[in-house]
Write a protein that binds this DNA or RNA. Structure first.
Length: 618
DNA sequence: TTTAGGG
DNA sequence: CCCTAAA
């Protein structure tokens, strides 16, 4: 393909993405779904091209756009018309949707461009280009978002800056540098859709514009880049009815320069300036988040290709190949996510850190013939999981079994704060797409505090909200059952909660049960046996005291009075433990496992303890 | 849901 | 620790 040759000149797998320059974003009747019919798409492309040319003429008449129109015309000729197809609706939609304070002009949406090139280019070039551009897009968005937001904190209350990709919806890297939350890092995994963008109530329109524009700048055509790195900024600045804050423009300029250098470095384009080669972005940001973001984008791009092929009912071989690639990539990403999905919520000094180690997929229907190979089964399972995840996930948060619906609540208001029983938090991932056959709620398989050090810190923290359960103790306290209501045994704060193993069909979702525990009370959904958690001496002591106080046969009362905070100990557990204790006591010491002289030692010890004068071992 | 008891 | 009958 001619276009491929033009694009695929990166000798190091680094392609310079071509961006048609669209100085003015005229409203175009263009659905984001036009790709279903290529003829329809071509019509729209023609319309878009006409609009662009008209805009270009207008632009060229402006004195301030010197030197850009010509280069623009060149790139216009060199780029296939398809590339323009949906860039316009993307931008126009974004601008209209958010008003952008009159910012109705911008650059062509790189996303639309990407999507088009994905269609037009051959497979390899598509992938490489998409990867390259999307990586660049991601990074630059990140860079700009950081720069922009950090520079405009006072005026921008930016909850979430979104980069939009038509068809795939919006894939958002949330960078809320709002003035209210000093430092928040989030990755929105949910595959946001256009409607989801509207839900970003905190999204600042101006910043959103800027970010989208940055995406444009990131993918300038080499010719354009060589003609002047600031051209894109000129376009933005002159054509929008509303001039963004100068600082915003400056940042855009900066990003443009930077991007030119980056995109061109390593390429053999004759117009490569070579200046600032090897430029390293000032702000590296969270590489992991960016990589995941980029991976997400790539997957979306490739899935789009597959969907295209399926819709056309042709080129199934190519589709299968694409699926395979997608599968591979997605599986990697899924695994990474399983291991590392972390939800950070930092709010000044009061922070709540959670780590969701993995999710369990409860129901996965696999239909496969008996004569299928194991490999095909693996692929089928992988596809099913991929479908679930790729279909978009809606996150739900369960606190003590209750679904927290109000998204506007603060974590503190919702009861997610230090000192609270964070092991009562559950996360659900519901499939958003119409994947009825796979619809279901993915329950968190593992959740834990971030790091053991945090557990200690956590144990020492006081929650500002009233909390009956915050009695962190490293050592199990002696309990006086004369006041059963005062007996608290918060073992779960100091002992690692362990969880049962997963019985998920998908092998790579099997968790490491020892490292990443979750409250047992939340995890009997899948029938797995709870992990064995032997009673500690302290627990036995409390149990004995409670039984002594309350008598046998009142296991519920024992539970409530002495083990109310130990969610992993049910009254049945206490009853069973008592049963074993009685049995152990009834048998000869030499028949017991463990230490025969245990009780005598305990009796001696407890008698020496003034806090527990009533101890009466069984 | 809780208790009791076998597995 | 699971399962379940019985209350």
């Amino acid at each position: 393909m001619v276009l491929q040759k033009r694009l695929d000149y990166g000798s190091h797998g680094h392609q310079v993405p071509i961006k048609p320059r669209v100085p003015i974003l005229a409203p175009v009747k263009c659905s984001t779904r036009i790709r279903k019919k290529q003829m329809f798409a071509l019509d729209l492309l023609a319309t878009a091209a006409e609009t662009l040319l008209a805009d270009q003429e207008n632009l060229s008449s402006r004195p301030n756009i010197d030197g850009t129109a010509e280069g623009y015309a060149t790139s216009m000729k060199s780029v296939k018309a398809e590339q323009f197809a949906e860039a316009l609706p993307l931008r126009s939609m974004a601008m209209r949707k958010y008003g952008c304070k009159g910012c109705t002009v911008g650059c062509a949406g790189v996303c639309g461009f990407l999507r088009q090139t994905n269609i037009c280019l051959s497979e390899n070039s598509t992938r490489n280009l998409a990867d390259s551009v999307l990586e660049s897009l991601t990074e630059k968005s990140d860079v700009l978002a950081k720069d922009l937001f950090s520079s405009n904190r006072k005026s921008h209350r930016l909850g979430c800056a979104l980069g939009m990709i038509p068809e795939y919806g919006a894939i958002g890297v949330c960078r809320p540098w709002s003035t209210r939350s000093a430092k928040v890092k989030q990755v929105h995994w949910a595959r946001a859709r256009p409607t989801a963008i509207r839900n970003q109530a905190d999204g600042d329109a101006t910043a959103l514009c800027a970010l989208v524009e940055t995406m444009d700048l990131d993918t300038k055509h080499p010719a354009e880049a060589s003609s002047g790195s600031s051209s894109g900024v000129h376009l933005c600045g002159h054509d929008r009815g509303h001039i963004s804050p100068p600082l915003c423009l400056a940042k855009l300029q900066h990003a443009a320069d930077r991007d030119d250098d980056e995109n061109l470095s390593g390429c053999v384009h004759p117009s490569t300036s070579g200046n600032n080669r090897g430029y390293i972005p000032h702000y590296i940001g969270d590489r992991r988040i960016r990589r995941l973001f980029a991976s997400r984008l790539r997957k979306a791009a490739r899935n789009k290709i597959c969907g295209e092929m399926y819709n056309k009912g042709s080129k199934l071989n190519l589709c299968a190949k694409k699926l395979s690639t997608t599968r591979h990539r997605v599986q990697q990403t899924t695994f990474k996510r399983k291991r590392h999905v972390q939800l950070y919520n930092e709010k000044s000094s009061n922070e709540v850190k959670l780590t969701i180690k993995s999710f369990n997929i409860p129901e996965l229907l696999i239909e496969i013939p008996e004569n299928a190979t194991v490999g095909s089964l693996k692929k089928t399972v992988s596809d099913a999981v991929t479908t679930i995840i790729e279909g978009g996930l809606r996150v739900g948060i369960l606190l003590q079994g209750k679904n927290i619906q109000n998204d506007n609540k603060t974590l503190r208001q919702a009861g997610i704060c230090r000192g609270k029983k964070l092991d009562d938090i559950g996360f659900t991932l519901e499939c958003e797409a119409g994947q009825d056959s796979h619809a279901g709620v993915i329950m968190p398989e593992e959740m834990d505090f971030v790091g053991a050090s945090f557990v200690d810190k956590f144990a020492m923290m006081k929650c500002e909200e009233p909390d009956d359960n915050q009695q962190p103790m490293q050592d199990f306290p002696g309990c006086t059952l004369s006041d059963p209501g005062s007996v608290n045994c918060p073992m779960e704060w100091t002992t690692q909660e362990t969880s049962a193993s997963s019985q998920a069909i998908v092998p790579f979702l099997t968790p490491n049960i020892e490292m990443f525990p979750l409250s047992n009370s939340k995890r009997s959904d899948f029938g797995q046996r709870r992990i064995r958690r032997p009673f500690s001496v302290a627990e036995v002591e409390v149990l004995v005291k409670a039984v002594e106080q309350l008598g046998t046969g009142r296991w519920r009362d024992v539970k409530l009075s002495a083990f109310d905070n130990a969610d992993h100990r049910t009254y049945v557990d206490l009853k069973d433990k008592w049963k074993t204790l009685v049995h152990t006591a009834s048998i000869a010491p030499h028949q017991r496992r463990g230490e025969p002289a245990y009780w005598s030692q305990q009796q001696t010890k407890l008698q020496d303890d003034p806090q527990v004068p009533e101890m009466c071992p069984t």
